[in-house]
Design a binder for these strands. Structure first.
Lengths: 167, 167
DNA sequence: TATTGTTATACTCTATAACTATA
DNA sequence: TATAGTTATAGAGTATAACAATA
């Protein structure tokens, strides 16, 4: 990934290169105005964190999106697909295929809703609860690794700041 | 998007719902352990920020990825495709199609490298420089909007914290 | 042998629209 | 009329592998 130090060393933060100046082919690149864009660093951080998450949960083959679905089903009794999709910002159509997959793996169930015959009440199977428990443990080691890397204070601060972006 | 207040109101942060308790169908869902995962909030924040960026630059049809490529080419004289791809964390193969597209729009050029006949020196055309200038202005209003939303202090703090995730 | 740009393929995810069965 | 779940399709983006030209 790009290092901020490279950009500083290159001195190209914001200002374009001098007219006629030919960049040394071996010189590191500069970020330019990207240096000041929150979106750029949010994206890089998110990708890095997800990569670590994916590596950490590879042994049980659970993706970040699947984890979020399992956690929300586990934390809420019988939510509908529409509720889970809207809550997690996943397309309803996308959730259908995710649940098909989780169901095929025997982790989740679609039970008839007690109150609305159009909708399904989502539940974890016994295997789903077991997998979620293991997933939480692994996600915990992932989170602890992040925390060790940036420090507990920064971790807490970041969580608080990021919550401000909610819509 | 999900609101933290909903999760708090629901009281399902971390702990599973009580055995046998049937969640009120109208009750909002709870995040469960997601509440403590940096990755979850990083993703939501990144999506929200990118959505605002895309809306803001819609009039010139420049995506966040395209913007980052134009900025890096504009800030560095004649970088190669491999350099830009590695620097921005884009696959080399993906950058080929992006440049095909930008070139078709008349914004970038692949010139022969002075030192290596395998590689191309990437440059902005006059139109590319003009578009980049406009893009920077629009991206500036986007960034100012973010800043107004979370405050200058939080914006600066976030930038600093996010840089710690670089690899 | 390794690297640059390229092509190709498969898979994931997003965005839409449309359909059915219910409400 | 509107909503829940579903199906289908098109477009990004990611991940890989392979190839020709060049280093």
């Amino acid at each position: 990934m790009a290092s901020r130090r490279l950009a500083e060393r290159n001195g190209t933060d914001g200002a374009p290169p001098r007219k006629g100046a030919r960049r040394d082919a071996a010189a590191p690149l500069g970020l330019g105005v990207l240096e000041n864009h929150l979106g750029y660093f949010l994206r890089r951080a998110q990708v890095a964190v997800f990569q670590d998450f994916i590596r950490t949960l590879a042994e049980i083959d659970i993706s970040p999106a699947q984890y979020s679905v399992l956690v929300v089903i586990g934390a809420n009794r019988g939510p509908s697909q529409a509720e889970v999709a809207e809550f997690l910002g996943i397309e309803r159509a996308r959730l259908v295929r995710m649940l098909d997959h989780l169901e095929k793996r025997g982790l989740t169930q679609r039970l008839p809703s007690a109150t609305d015959r159009r909708s399904h009440a989502l539940h974890l199977t016994a295997a789903g609860q077991k997998t979620l428990k293991r997933a939480k443990a692994l996600a915990g080691t992932h989170e602890t690794r992040l925390l060790g890397r940036i420090g507990a204070g920064h971790h807490k601060l970041l969580l608080e700041l990021l919550r401000e972006f909610e819509v």
